[in-house]
Nucleic acid binder design. Structure first.
Length: 613
DNA sequence: AAAAAAG
């Protein structure tokens, strides 16, 4: 029966195995046309591994040895038979999950094991290795929700019906219990609600939107794909992010979560050859992770259609909707063939969410829940923030002093990683060169480098091979780099939100971090916001900075009324007096965001909704 | 003014 889109997707893929065959086998409607089954079509992937080796004694439940699940497996093949009997198939005890009657067979026999086949498994999984998560750091987190009928949070993964295969992957990731944003966001999404979520950097947002998507796709009705054109693919979920490296990272994470669920995740971004990405797409895609430019390209080539999208997730959503990106995002979301709000489920995530961006974002949402999870303070107080007054001309030698001190401190074992942010691409190259000739191995990542160079730089940094990375804002958001001990704002950004994201590259997953900023007259416009932010995060604010702040306190665009926290306030609450649009961050409101202390509407216990209703 | 994102 050629009813499933998967069959449609399968044919072009088979065709790609034999380039000469063109689209003929699709046209014939012959389901078993491919004679060289290099590729296992989705409808065949889920055959119970009848003759496979039985599960060894090693249960795999918590291979707590080492930091990596399956680290002992040299190759991916080794790991898979063991798991097959436990995950996708045998586990079908849960209601509905094992039911393959729909012809929507899931699971794969050829899927590479994303847990066991990575060269740098420790680095790759390290941060998400939640044995290392310091959950105590997440106690007493203030939560605010608003919107109608907010589904209550959960306390454990077990009480969420995510499906056996996904549960198993959660165990493999060593996620012991959900982080606060996951506790709240996952039930909201599973209930089918649209969501705008603010949560601190490093608090597990990726999983928060991936789990409901994967679960929903597994649970969902099989789709009949319109045979629009054989080379067009119809993803069910779209995840957009502002940088290529972040898309890669989300893809890697999502692959782990969807391992042996039969849900296929594909990534597409610019700067890399498009042909491999096209081949990946042709093999079938449920979740497409992409950067906007490349996606538009694919859409215009009609290689991707958004017609079947059920889930849309924007990571770093405020960034995606700011001036540079907004037209592209609108084009993708509103002017292609994506179902409208209400006909799809939309999830927006970021650590920061300025009010006027919330307003733009609300165009994409339908009856959404606003969720803010985080401490009172836009940055986690796991990060020690320092500001030093440094003239432009002294910055280099000052950085050198810091690096020397750090080296002297001799972090045992692996060298601590230092991420240095600068303002410009040229400045990045210049600083890298200077560091290099002064004996500090450094590399750099910015938009003037080739994609290969960018990826190489990031790998080299992550592995500790080059423990200093000089970066522009391309690296400011979302990147999850374990062991970043120190973020240096060599040049401060002009926007306080960028500062929040930059320093959020450290202090992740409940670990501590240090952030040092070089401040001088050029940064006067940031003084107020910076001082406020630091104060909220219980950081020591230098007296000279407070003086700068007082001097420039006539509400520049960086000034957040009411102590902006991390943008964690639903603009709808104040929108009636915000229509004028003259405000930024709701400037001039009287309410002042969260109350100075304990002003949260609730969210601590189940069933709590908010005063917004 | 800068950075990012298609080629």
């Amino acid at each position: 029966m050629r009813t499933s889109w998967a069959d449609l997707a399968a044919s072009p893929a088979a065709e790609s195995a034999g380039p000469g065959s063109s689209a003929s086998n699709v046209g014939t409607g012959n389901p078993s046309a491919p004679t060289r089954p290099v590729y296992v079509p989705p409808h065949l992937r889920n055959r119970p591994p009848s003759a496979e080796a039985p599960a060894p004694a090693n249960s795999g439940r918590t291979s707590a040895s080492g930091s990596v699940a399956g680290a002992g497996n040299v190759g991916s093949r080794l790991a898979m038979p063991r798991n097959d009997t436990r995950l996708g198939y045998g586990g079908g005890s849960r209601t509905g999950w094992g039911n393959r009657g729909s012809g929507w067979d899931r699971g794969k026999e050829r899927e590479a094991n994303p847990f066991g086949d990575e060269d740098n498994a420790e680095e790759a999984i390290g941060e998400q290795d939640n044995t290392g998560i310091n959950f105590d750091a997440y106690e007493d987190i203030p939560v605010e929700t608003s919107g109608g009928n907010v589904p209550p949070p959960v306390n454990t993964f077990a009480e969420i019906e995510l499906g056996e295969a996904l549960d198993q992957n959660i165990r493999r990731c060593k996620y012991v219990k959900p982080t606060p944003v996951q506790r709240h966001a996952i039930p909201i999404s599973l209930a089918g609600r649209d969501l705008m979520a603010c949560a601190q950097t490093g608090s597990g947002k990726t999983a928060a939107f991936c789990f409901p998507i994967i679960s929903g796709i597994m649970r969902g009705q099989p789709v009949q794909r319109p045979p629009r054109g054989v080379r067009t693919v119809y993803p069910l979920a779209l995840v957009l992010s502002p940088t290529r490296e972040l898309s890669m990272q989300i893809h890697e994470e999502a692959r782990k979560f969807s391992y042996q669920t039969g849900v296929r995740v594909v990534v597409a971004y610019g700067g890399a050859p498009i042909n491999q990405q096209l081949r990946d797409l042709e093999r079938g895609v449920d979740i497409l992770v992409a950067t906007p430019g490349r996606l538009v390209d694919l859409l215009e080539r009609a290689r991707v259609s958004l017609q079947m999208i059920r889930y849309l997730a924007l990571d770093e959503a405020d960034r995606m909707l700011d001036m540079g990106f907004e037209p592209q995002i609108r084009k993708i979301v509103e002017q292609m063939d994506m179902p409208p709000p209400g006909a799809r489920q939309t999830m927006l995530f970021s650590a920061t969410f300025p009010k006027e961006i919330q307003r733009l974002a609300s165009d994409f949402l339908s009856n959404y829940v606003f969720l803010a999870v985080g401490r009172v303070g836009s940055s986690t107080d796991l990060i020690v923030q320092r500001v030093e007054f440094v003239q432009e001309s002294d910055k280099r030698s000052h950085l050198m002093d810091l690096l020397h001190a750090q080296r002297a401190n001799g972090v045992q074992g692996k060298q601590a990683l230092t991420l240095v942010f600068v303002e410009t691409k040229k400045g990045a190259d210049a600083l890298e060169h200077w560091l290099f000739i002064n004996g500090f191995p450094a590399t750099t990542i910015h938009g003037d480098r080739t994609q290969q160079e960018r990826e190489m730089a990031l790998r080299s940094f992550k592995s500790g091979n080059t423990p200093i990375l000089v970066a522009t804002d391309v690296a400011a958001r979302g990147l999850d780099i374990p062991h970043v001990a120190h973020v240096v704002n060599f040049d401060l950004p002009n926007d306080i939100d960028d500062y929040v994201h930059r320093i959020g590259r450290t202090g992740r997953a409940g670990k501590k971090g240090l952030a040092t900023a070089f401040f001088n007259e050029n940064n006067a416009s940031l003084a107020r916001a910076l001082a406020d932010l630091m104060q909220e995060a219980n950081q020591e604010v230098p007296a000279w900075l407070s003086r700068y702040a007082a001097r420039s306190s006539f509400g520049g665009r960086n000034r957040r009324s009411g102590g902006g926290r991390f943008g964690g306030r639903d603009f709808r609450r104040e929108s009636f007096n915000n229509r004028g649009g003259s405000d930024y961050y709701g400037g001039g409101n009287s309410g002042g965001g969260y109350g100075a202390s304990g002003g949260y509407a609730g969210g601590y216990g189940p069933g709590v909704t908010s005063a917004w209703d």
